[in-house]
Design a protein around this nucleic acid. Sequence first.
DNA 1: CTTTTGTATTTTGTATACAGAATTCGGATC
DNA 2: GATCCGAATTCTGTATACAAAATACAAAAG
Lengths: 249, 249
Amino acid sequence: MSLGSWRMRPSLRQFPKATSLELLPVKDGVDQIHRSTLPTALVDSLRQLIVEGELAPGSKVNEAALCARFDVSRTPLREALRTLETEGLIVLRPRRGAMVAEFTQAELDQAFPVLAALEALAGELACPNLTDADLNRARALQEELEASWRDGDLHRYGAANAETHALILNAAENPTLTRSVRTLDARVRRARVLVNMAPSRWAAAVAEHRDILAAMEARDAARLSTVLKRHITNKLLSLRAQLRERGEG
Amino acid sequence: MSLGSWRMRPSLRQFPKATSLELLPVKDGVDQIHRSTLPTALVDSLRQLIVEGELAPGSKVNEAALCARFDVSRTPLREALRTLETEGLIVLRPRRGAMVAEFTQAELDQAFPVLAALEALAGELACPNLTDADLNRARALQEELEASWRDGDLHRYGAANAETHALILNAAENPTLTRSVRTLDARVRRARVLVNMAPSRWAAAVAEHRDILAAMEARDAARLSTVLKRHITNKLLSLRAQLRERGEG
DNA sequence: CTTTTGTATTTTGTATACAGAATTCGGATC
DNA sequence: GATCCGAATTCTGTATACAAAATACAAAAG
């Protein structure tokens, strides 16, 4: 049986490798993969290209070039661009085509209070739902964070960090919230690719994660909320400082 | 001169009547209207149909029927559906077409803490930016609220209410926040069409708006934030109660 | 009468065609 | 050399074409 990949051209087959955000469960059916369509796959692929900086902020997106690259026609590509426009990663100017959304200082400044507020809310909502399994996983992730920090393994650290936040978001059991955070996070994550985390910030982040874990273990919603808000705020303040420095240097 | 409506078929010409959310400034250029494209216009039209309940939650969306109704081909219609899917108003199941997103109790329960948190943030950010002109407008709107309440004019009240919230959101000067609120608000607004505001709630809402105005006049960010959060929470709690009642009755 | 199976119809996903705007580029003018 | 104009080219917006999946439906089997 052909797995229902009707008319799907070969090159995209390899693309649906999930970004960290896609790790969050979608829960719609077991056989989702078979049913994925070109626009959906393209959204994931393009988002990854944008978030990882391969498609640079402000650069013009050439439809024909992307069609050739992914070996698809313009129809599904354009649908994907519409989705990314709504997510804020692409800007579509009528009759002038698509550009990768600029990534300005101002945008970061805008995004981070929103993200901080939403993550704080996530913590608040998550607390009463935290299972023992969640806490065990959180403890394991904390060890992973500490270990990868000691080893200076930024990539491993990033993965554990992302999973910790995803764990809290999942425990909040609020898909609407998850969706909002996802969208914003994709926009902010682009900055993280541009600059590496400063060593001092890294140490602070690990310490903050200890506080987060402690609040989770205490199932103290107010405290978890506060700590998460501070954590996100600090992270983004540091990011901003580095971006500014980089902009001047 | 043809206003640049190249190949645009006549029936859509009349559609871009803005919903209350579209009142928020977009600031991209003066000649936006000339440049609008079919998918953009369709998004507005369809969103209105969904928010106003003409396209009922859970109902299947027939592409061909909508194409006929708006006299457009499937290409722009499908792009519009992708946008609405990203906004959460449409659910696209591969190979099974589009449905209007269900509007469940659960969804409302999810949306409202998020919306409350975001509106609270808006108030906090808006306070330092409030100009005297903003305050004057807010006072005028408060009078409008009180007058339409006394006259029992729900429609007029709704307009003044929407403008008040838009004013605060605008003063927050955070397009990222505005975008998030917009999206969520469209989803929640569908509920408001289903049930009329209860008289007791209406009186309470007017009183809460007085508090909001007072906090604005005092330029007290913390208080405005608190009051707004309570206002949104109360509004949605009442909505939920009425929906539940209606569901049982 | 219910269930099943096979077939006709509808609908969806994708590719392609085509008109008109936007952009590019070479030459003419200052 | 810079600026303006117009033709050539590229790109965008939309419509249409077509194959495969989904659905509806009717006849056959139990």
